[in-house]
Design a protein around this nucleic acid. Structure first.
Lengths: 143, 143
DNA sequence: TCACTATTGAGATGGTGAATCAATTTCATT
DNA sequence: AATGAAATTGATTCACCATCTCAATAGTGA
């Protein structure tokens, strides 16, 4: 029993439930995906480029979207590209972003998280992940 | 003194500070922008299409990005397009998003806002805006 | 007004992600 | 193991959004 192969079970469940099939490509893409916190289709493509039978870019996209449907991944539009976040890795760091110099500070705040859960519960939601970005001006840029 | 022309001052400040110019196009685009809560470049283009001297799509994109730099707007990738949110209109509604059906619920929570200010202060930041999105599953989709 | 510089607009370009479809692979059933 | 229906793959094409290019134009400080 491997410690990091809980997710393949989740994937198998989803595949079985939707009459989909477990292919070599899906396994290979999952193996790479599980080791990353987040990845783009392009990055994944490059990482798998040296595999013996090539994996096409279209398959990468399809499979990452499949992971989203199976609840393993979550798509996030970042700049022009789509980041596929690994849900199991969610040591979610939130961000403070300086709109002047672009400096980014990561933070984590349990109180905020608790309040988020509360808001979600009041609205009947079960939170899987979140994104919190604070935009402002840092000390240096305030002159 | 017009009540809705505070933003043109902000824009002028930004332009002056960066040696940029106030053009007819920028004024027209601002006028439309100020009346919308959020808008895409494509929408803006269509709304200005009947103006006497045409405004090119490239200019729309450039100007909306300028507004972001000036702190009047905030870009948000939604689906395949980019939404430009009018910051002055946002009685900052944050979002609860169902990853299954796409349902979006807006909410506001003063306690969270207060904690955000605190985090920012501890890091030497002065917050201008923020973006908070909670992703999860809504009641209907949980079966 | 002048001169300098930023801006504009039409079109070309780039880049992401999805659609197509013939060939291939999976897997439940023999 | 073999079969065959159904899903998957991958090379390519396609659609779309946003940015870049560059000659012509317009704003601004003197």
């Amino acid at each position: 029993m491997h410690k990091d192969h809980k997710e393949i079970g989740l994937l198998r469940d989803h595949l079985a439930k939707h009459q989909l099939k477990l292919t070599r490509q899906r396994e290979q893409i999952l193996n790479v995906f599980l080791r990353m916190e987040h990845i783009t289709a392009e990055q994944m493509y490059r990482m798998l480029a040296k595999k013996d039978p090539h994996i096409g870019l279209a398959t990468i996209y399809r499979t990452l979207n499949l992971f989203c449907e199976a609840g393993l991944a979550q798509a996030r539009h970042f700049g022009t590209q789509t980041q596929y976040d690994n849900i199991s890795h969610k040591g979610h760091h939130d961000h403070l972003i300086c709109t002047d110099c672009g400096k980014i500070v990561e933070f984590e705040n349990c109180d905020i998280e608790r309040l988020q859960e509360e808001v979600a519960r009041r609205n009947g939601f079960t939170i899987k992940t979140h994104k919190l970005e604070l935009y402002g001006v840092c000390t240096n840029c305030r002159h």
